[in-house]
Design a protein around this nucleic acid. Structure first.
Length: 586
RNA sequence: CGGGGCGUAGCGCAGUCUGGUAGCGCACCUGACUGGGGGUCAGGUGGUCGCAGGUUCAAAUCCUGCCGUCCCGACCA
């Protein structure tokens, strides 16, 4: 490919709306063009990158026996109502929907569990056809609250989604494990550093899931890692050990109610009662679980020095969404102002759940639903009915880890893949069954497995870019090398560039020839901005001493070599890096 | 959904406060020179100033509404 014909358009300035490095560089280098918020056009070079990402995914999935299909994006609402997911996705607003001329309603697929389950139900009749894993690489749609960060969070994106169908849990475990291994191979082959972490399945549902994260400063997910133990989890899911409250095991004292004028928060209470530390207090958080046709009130008890994990809470109380009560609602339901709620004398409309951090506490301080008063030396089970307990606590960096108690470390990551054990969450309600060995119909035991193709490309930029521009790993670079002719007007340089270019092509290298009639500085800047892993520079050193310069974009190193040696060097380096960088990275 | 910023040429911006002929840099086109870090000179193309209404002799500029876009907020008992 000649650069003069490759539709290369680069800019000197960052776009005004870009925040993160991948967005700035991909826009400056002309890889992406924003059509409107959260919607991008991919340039020819960008599409080459995306095809390479796709092909690595295809290759590895095909190796596991998975089968590629193509499913409709436009999906009728009644299919989604059969799984029960229509209401959840409409409630959270994440699904685009539209109607046809007959007023029938359709959604634009954010994922395809319903469609693929429907297909499997009709085409798989016998256990003898199982297991099967169907995947596609296709456009997905999500009505993001705030599209941002270039390709990292958009309304329309490329995603690989795979769905496994097994006869039983053991089969699912095997399918899931095969995908887990394939995912690690996929990211390794792309030359990316990915970490598998325990995760919450979110709206997709199911019994277990693992996210694949690319470490990057701009990641939107917090990951907690217990060093040396192999424990890594999304903060939404992470667990930690907790030292017991100092009150555990004390002899109960008599309940008393004290005036605490205008003292509402734990911090204020610590100031007001200097002898009582936060670990002796209990916060009462009032929320409502929003269900389709009702709202359920919950009071959540947690130790004063701890915080609630909203994802764990939502999983516990159920419903489409969990919302904090407003000050008005608190006053209405508890009879007291905000800041004084507590389990004592609480309106019976509230269901009460306690975090495990509260279990065993005695002589604790909490609210008692009277404005400007708090209760002290409260004993659960004596002063209010002992609630059910659950793990609702947010694990924090520095907390002792769950495996060996080593302090948890915080990392930021970009979620590029997610695998789920769905079980029969979709197949059972949708009536998707096969005839088992016993001759009776039974629901598929399913798993699903996603990779954000366009997000992977942007994440790769995040992970490797430097102040000069993009640095593509060889396996997903749009071209593996560029031959830069610094002065195409000079016949000697032009013809030498052609020779190098043709030689590299014939050796199987994907190479671009920069034959553009621009100044040498601009060409060198462009090559760096665009991120080609290797550059062969043909310029003055060739004229004076028949030497070419070979540059490594990632290390910045350059070597001056004769023509044949330069070609051999580039070919050898690229062939060494094609399988991915993992041997060098970790 | 709430709060705030911004919409002027393909991109980045000034001009708006204080109304009076639409500007700068980059990019692009033509030519010449230049050719190892976005080079120089000369000439040129390109804008219903987001949209709609209003005030005025006169609106990019003032007023009203709408739209778009970006940022912040949605851990607190």
């Amino acid at each position: 490919m000649r650069a003069s014909r490759a539709h290369i358009v680069t800019y000197r300035d960052d776009p005004a709306d870009a925040e993160v490095i991948s967005h700035k560089l991909m826009a400056r280098a002309g890889y992406i063009y924003k059509v409107s918020a959260g919607l991008y056009a991919y340039s020819p070079l960008m599409w080459r990158v995306l095809k390479k990402v796709q092909n690595i995914i295809r290759d590895e999935l095909d190796d596991t026996g998975a089968l590629e299909v193509q499913l409709p994006i436009l999906q009728s609402d009644d299919l989604w109502k059969r799984s029960g997911r229509w209401d959840a996705y409409q409630a959270s607003g994440t699904m685009f929907s539209t109607t046809d001329r007959k007023e029938a309603t359709y959604g634009l697929a954010p994922t395809a569990e319903e469609v693929v389950t429907d297909y499997a139900a009709s085409s798989v009749n016998s256990y003898k056809q199982l297991p099967i894993n169907l995947y596609q690489i296709h456009t997905k749609f999500r009505d993001e609250i705030r599209p941002r960060f270039g390709l990292l969070r958009v309304k329309e994106f490329l995603m690989k989604d795979a769905y496994s169908f097994d006869v039983d849990e053991a089969g699912l475990d095997a399918s899931y494990e095969a995908m887990r291994v394939a995912y690690h191979r996929i990211f390794e082959r792309m030359g990316l550093r990915a970490l598998g972490v325990d995760a919450d399945p979110g709206d997709i549902g199911g019994s277990g899931s693992m996210e694949f994260m690319l470490a990057a400063e701009t990641g939107e997910d917090d990951i907690l890692v217990e060093p040396g133990t192999g424990y890594a989890a999304n903060v939404e899911k992470a667990e930690s050990r907790l030292s017991p409250s100092p009150s555990v095991g004390e002899a109960p004292r008599a309940l008393r109610i004290e005036d605490t004028p205008e003292i509402r928060t734990v911090a204020e209470l610590e100031g007001f009662f200097p002898e009582i530390e936060a670990a002796r207090m209990v916060k009462t958080v009032l929320v409502k679980a929003v269900h389709q046709d009702e709202e359920v009130l919950w009071a959540v008890l947690i130790r004063g020095d701890q915080e609630i994990n909203e994802v764990k809470l939502k999983n516990h109380v159920g419903g489409l969404a969990v919302q904090m009560l407003t000050a008005e609602e608190i006053a209405k339901h508890t009879g007291a102002q905000q800041g004084f709620a507590g389990p004592i004398g609480l309106n019976e409309a509230f269901s009460i759940v306690g975090d495990l951090s509260v279990k065993g506490m005695v002589n604790l301080l909490c609210g008692c639903n009277q404005t400007d008063k708090h209760a002290l030396d409260v004993v659960p089970g004596r002063d209010f009915a002992e609630p059910a307990y659950a793990d609702l606590r947010l694990a924090r960096p520095g907390d002792p880890g769950p495996r060996e108690g080593r302090p948890l470390e915080l990392y930021r990551g970009i979620e590029v893949g997610h695998i789920f054990k769905l079980g029969t969450k979709y197949s059972a309600p949708m009536g998707a069954t096969f005839i088992g060995e016993n001759g009776k119909p039974q629901p598929f035991v399913m798993g699903c497995y996603g990779i954000g193709v366009s997000r992977v490309a942007a994440s790769a930029v995040e992970q490797y870019a430097d102040d000069k521009g993009i640095v593509w790993p060889v396996p997903i670079a749009p071209f593996e090398a560029i031959v830069t002719c610094l002065n195409p007007k000079k016949e000697e340089l032009a013809s030498t560039s052609e020779r190098v270019y043709e030689a590299l092509k014939s050796r199987g290298i994907e190479v671009m020839l920069d034959d553009r009639k621009m100044g040498p500085g601009a060409k060198l800047k462009d090559a760096e901005l665009l991120g080609f892993p290797y550059a062969v520079v043909v310029g003055r050193s060739w004229e004076t001493e028949q030497q070419l310069e070979v540059r490594n974009r990632r290390t910045g190193e350059s070597e001056t070599l004769g023509l044949d040696e330069a070609i051999d060097r580039v070919v050898a380096a690229i062939e060494a890096e094609r399988p991915g960088l993992e041997s060098e990275v970790q």
